[in-house]
C-alpha cells in the first residue's frame, strides 16, 4: 500500500489531486444540500408529536454524527503522521479541526433550539450534552494549539497529542445515552435493518447526512490545499503559484 501511496505523498501531487477532486465534491454537495433542505423542510411529512419543529433533525443529526466522524478522521490522520512521518497527514488534520468545531457548534446550537419546545429546556447537564460540550472544547483546544506555535510542523505535533488524548471522549459521547438515563433519546438510525423512523422521514435524513459529508469533504479539500501551501512556502512550485497571484 505504501508504494502505491508514495507518489501522492508528495505535496505537489496531492495539491493537484485535491484541486481536481474539489469541484466534484463542491458541486455534488451543493446540489444535495439544496435537495436535502427542500425535501426536509417542505416535502417530508410532519411528525406525529413534534409536528413541524422535528425538521431540525435534518441538520442536527448530520452535524452531530459527522462532527464525531471528523474527530476520528483527524485522530487517524495524526496517527498516520506519527507512525509514517507523513507531513501531509498533519496538513489534513490541521484542515479538519475548524470544520469539526463548526459542526459541533452547529449541533449544540440546533440541539438547544430543538430542546426548547420539545423537552422544555434548552440545556441540561446530562452525560450526552456535557460530553458533547467537551468535544467542542477539545476542537477549540486543538485549533488554539495549531495557532500557538510559530512553526507549523511543531504545532501539528502538539495539537496531535491533544487530539489523541481527546479520543477517549468519543465512545463516552456515543454510548452516554445507553449507559446513563439521559434526557437525550437514543440513536435513531443505529440499526439499519429497522430504523425507528418512517421511511418518508428517513430518506431525506439520509440525503442530508450524505450532503453534509460531501460538504465536509469539499471544505476539507479547500483547507487542506491552504495548509499544503502554507507548509511548503519555500518550494519553487508554491513560489510560482504565488508569483501568478502577485502579478494580478
Amino acid at each position: 500500500m505504501w508504494k502505491w501511496l508514495h507518489p501522492y505523498a508528495k505535496p505537489e501531487r496531492s495539491y493537484q489531486l485535491a484541486s481536481t477532486l474539489l469541484p466534484w465534491f463542491a458541486i455534488s454537495s451543493i446540489v444535495l444540500l439544496v435537495i436535502g433542505a427542500v425535501w426536509g423542510l417542505a416535502f417530508a411529512p410532519a411528525e406525529l408529536y413534534q409536528k413541524e419543529y422535528y425538521r431540525i433533525i435534518y441538520i442536527h443529526v448530520p452535524s452531530a454524527t459527522l462532527s464525531m466522524s471528523v474527530y476520528m478522521a483527524m485522530a487517524t490522520a495524526v496517527l498516520i503522521s506519527m507512525v509514517w512521518q507523513l507531513k501531509l497527514a498533519d496538513a489534513a488534520a490541521a484542515a479538519m479541526a475548524p470544520i469539526g468545531a463548526t459542526l459541533t457548534a452547529t449541533a449544540l446550537i440546533t440541539g438547544a433550539i430543538w430542546g426548547a419546545p420539545s423537552w422544555g429546556t434548552s440545556w441540561v447537564w446530562d452525560a450526552r450534552l456535557t460530553s458533547y460540550l467537551i468535544l467542542l472544547f477539545l476542537y477549540l483546544g486543538v485549533i488554539a494549539l495549531h495557532n500557538a506555535f510559530e512553526d507549523k510542523a511543531l504545532a501539528s505535533r502538539a495539537a496531535g497529542i491533544l487530539t489523541l488524548v481527546g479520543v477517549v471522549n468519543i465512545p463516552i459521547i456515543k454510548y452516554s445515552v445507553e449507559w446513563w438515563n439521559t434526557l437525550h433519546q437514543t440513536a435513531t438510525i443505529s440499526k439499519l435493518s429497522a430504523p425507528s423512523m418512517s421511511s418518508e422521514m428517513l430518506w431525506p435524513l439520509l440525503t442530508n447526512i450524505l450532503a453534509f459529508a460531501l460538504m465536509i469533504g469539499a471544505l476539507t479539500l479547500i483547507r487542506f490545499k491552504n495548509e499544503v501551501l502554507a507548509r511548503n512556502a519555500m518550494r519553487p512550485w508554491v513560489r510560482e503559484l504565488a508569483a501568478k497571484v502577485g502579478d494580478k
Binding site: 460540550l133 472544547f137 477549540l140 483546544g141 488524548v165
Partner: peptide, 19 residues
C-alpha cells in the same frame, strides 16, 4: 515553550477536568 501559555493552558485542561 510558549510565551503566552497561561490562557491556553486553561482552555486545554479545564474541559478535561469536567468529568
Amino acid at each position: 515553550g510558549l510565551k503566552k501559555g497561561g490562557v491556553l493552558l486553561s482552555l486545554l485542561i479545564l474541559p478535561l477536568y469536567i468529568p
